[in-house]
Amino acid sequence: MSNKKDKSGPCPCGQPSFDKCCGRFITGGQVPATAELLMRSRYSAYALRDEAYLRATWFPETLPDEELTSETDVKWIGLEIKKHQHAAGSDAATVEFVARFKVGGKAHRLHEISNFVRQPDGEGQMRWYYVDGSFPEG
């Protein structure tokens, strides 16, 4: 998938259809109902270099100042969701994942446990935001 406007074909997160998966969130048509769906769409936004979506879905108090998609030689090649934890009625969740990517042809993996919070956006609609993450051993 070469750009965020290409809706035909598979989703970068690994699902068969971009427009039925992460595309509906990245284009602003829908809001992810779970932290896992937000995690998948954020992975896809990194793969598509969609800076605006990444910033809009990052908790404002932990959002870094630097550009999030500045590394042009990164090619995202796979996502595995290992665990999604969200207690009923809670506005906090975690998603453990492994993202695979290549830099200069060399393969790498990012294993993270991401923290998410659900709160009202500027229009009062409840939505999930990425807060921060930690990197488990091994």
Rank of each mutant, 00 (worst) to 15 (best):
S2P: 08
S2V: 06
N3D: 11
N3I: 03
K5W: 02
K7C: 01
S8P: 00
G9C: 13
P10E: 05
P10M: 04
C11N: 01
C11F: 01
P12F: 04
C13E: 01
G14F: 06
Q15M: 04
F18E: 00
F18D: 03
K20W: 01
C21D: 04
C21W: 07
C22N: 01
T27P: 04
T27K: 03
T27R: 05
T27E: 00
G28C: 09
G29M: 08
Q30W: 08
Q30G: 01
V31F: 05
P32E: 10
P32D: 06
P32H: 11
A33K: 15
T34C: 11
A35C: 10
E36F: 05
L38Y: 10
L38A: 06
L38T: 12
L38H: 10
M39T: 03
R40T: 00
R40C: 00
S41E: 05
Y46E: 04
A47P: 03
L48T: 04
L48V: 02
R49E: 07
D50W: 01
D50N: 12
A52P: 09
L54M: 05
L54R: 12
R55I: 11
A56D: 13
T57W: 10
T57H: 12
T57V: 10
W58K: 14
F59Y: 15
F59A: 06
P60Q: 12
T62H: 09
P64N: 10
P64L: 09
D65G: 07
E66W: 01
E67R: 12
E67W: 03
S70Y: 13
E71L: 11
E71C: 02
T72L: 12
T72S: 13
D73A: 10
V74H: 07
V74G: 05
V74A: 02
I77D: 03
I77M: 04
G78M: 03
G78F: 03
G78L: 06
L79R: 06
L79Y: 03
E80G: 01
E80A: 10
E80T: 12
I81R: 04
K82Q: 08
Q85Y: 02
Q85I: 09
H86N: 09
A87H: 14
A87W: 04
A88F: 11
G89L: 12
A92H: 06
A92E: 13
T94E: 01
E96G: 02
E96S: 08
R100E: 09
R100K: 11
R100T: 11
F101M: 05
K102Y: 05
K102M: 01
K102A: 02
G105W: 05
K106F: 06
A107L: 15
H111T: 08
E112Q: 13
I113R: 14
S114T: 07
N115S: 14
N115K: 12
V117N: 07
R118I: 06
R118H: 13
R118K: 15
Q119I: 14
Q119P: 05
P120E: 12
P120F: 11
D121W: 13
G122F: 02
G122T: 14
G122D: 14
E123L: 12
E123G: 07
G124F: 14
G124T: 14
G124I: 14
G124W: 14
Q125L: 13
M126V: 08
W128T: 12
Y129Q: 00
Y129C: 06
Y130H: 12
Y130D: 00
S134V: 15
S134N: 13
S134E: 13
F135R: 13
F135N: 09
P136Y: 09
E137K: 15
E137I: 13
G138W: 05
G138P: 11
